[in-house]
């Protein structure tokens, strides 16, 4: 029983972070039908922001808020540097330019900060553990779950109730028609990148909180997670992204329990092979997105 509780908490906490990451990728993909390869670097940006503010004596929550703001800022900057110059050319072109932007950010960190890991300030609550039904778990996990619930609720409210959210959903199926109703294209696209940055920023706090430090290459794993979760869930489906995130966490956590020690180091290889199997069965992912729209 204890082990089950532990397992469920692990899956929910990891899955929450994965789902929010995937959501940030899908929100941009849904509208532009383009993939943002520089998405993982938002985690890095947030991490270095925290590092640079270390010792300023600001309350941690303020530092966290600034880190999230920086993530949003760089999310929107991705649009201007990597997407706008080549938009409407091809998926491949934008993948390459966003890959290039990701390289620029990483190498800038390398050049101006350091190739070595840097510790980031973290609040005490991140290192405390709690006991639930006999299972000992870091409080951080419960905070991740809580943050996931808050973010998903906020996201749903935004997309369902606000005119901006409705416009974004509309733009995801038919961008030209949305524009013919007076919805400004650039506003929608920038909002999508900003939301993407917000989600990555929030995830970064928990992701970095688990590791405690930041390196230039830190964005790779969260990027991969977001990629894979969205491919499993269906590239253009918001519920699919969430489902994909939790499913990926379930696969990862289960493999952690099932695999013998000497195979555990190959976990990622197993996970991705599993993903390839899912795609064999359902090439479009588990949940089909909204009616297809043309690329703008």
């Amino acid at each position: 029983m204890t082990e089950l509780i532990q397992f469920v908490i692990d899956v929910l906490a990891l899955g929450g972070a994965y789902a929010l990451m995937a959501l940030g990728l899908v929100i941009v993909y849904g509208i532009l039908k383009l993939v943002n390869f520089a998405y993982g670097e938002l985690i890095m940006v947030a991490g270095y922001t925290l590092f640079l503010m270390d010792g300023t004596g600001l309350p941690w929550l303020v530092m966290a808020a600034v880190a999230v703001l920086m993530s949003i800022f760089f999310g929107v900057a991705t649009d201007y540097v990597a997407f706008r110059p080549v938009r409407a050319k091809s998926v491949t072109a934008v993948l390459i330019t966003s890959f290039a932007f990701s390289t620029i950010l990483q190498n800038a960190a390398l050049l101006f900060i350091s190739p070595r890991a840097r510790n980031i300030p973290l609040p005490d609550v991140f290192s405390t553990t709690v006991t639930i039904g006999g299972a000992v778990t870091p409080l951080r996990n419960l905070l991740t779950i809580a943050a996931t619930i808050v973010m998903l609720t906020l996201f749903t409210w935004l997309m369902r109730r606000s005119i901006l959210g409705i416009a974004m959903r509309a733009a995801a199926t038919n961008f030209t028609m949305a524009r013919m109703l007076g919805v400004p294209a650039n506003l929608i696209i920038s909002s999508a990148f900003a939301i993407s940055g917000l989600l990555a920023g929030v995830v970064s706090l928990f992701w970095l909180g688990r590791i405690g430090s930041v390196v230039p290459g830190i964005g790779l794993e969260p990027l991969l997670v977001a990629f894979i979760a969205t491919v499993i869930g269906g590239m253009r489906s918001v519920p699919g992204a969430v489902l994909g995130g939790f499913l990926l966490a379930l696969i990862d956590t289960s493999l952690n329990h099932i695999l013998p020690q000497d195979l555990l180091k190959f976990r990622d290889a197993f996970t991705f092979s599993f993903v390839i199997l899912i795609l064999l069965w359902k090439p479009d992912g588990l949940i089909k997105g909204p009616a297809s729209g043309q690329r703008t």
Partner: peptide
């Protein structure tokens, strides 16, 4: 996109 992402995987 799916093709590129899986090649990345």
């Amino acid at each position: 996109a799916a093709a590129v992402i899986t090649s990345f995987a």
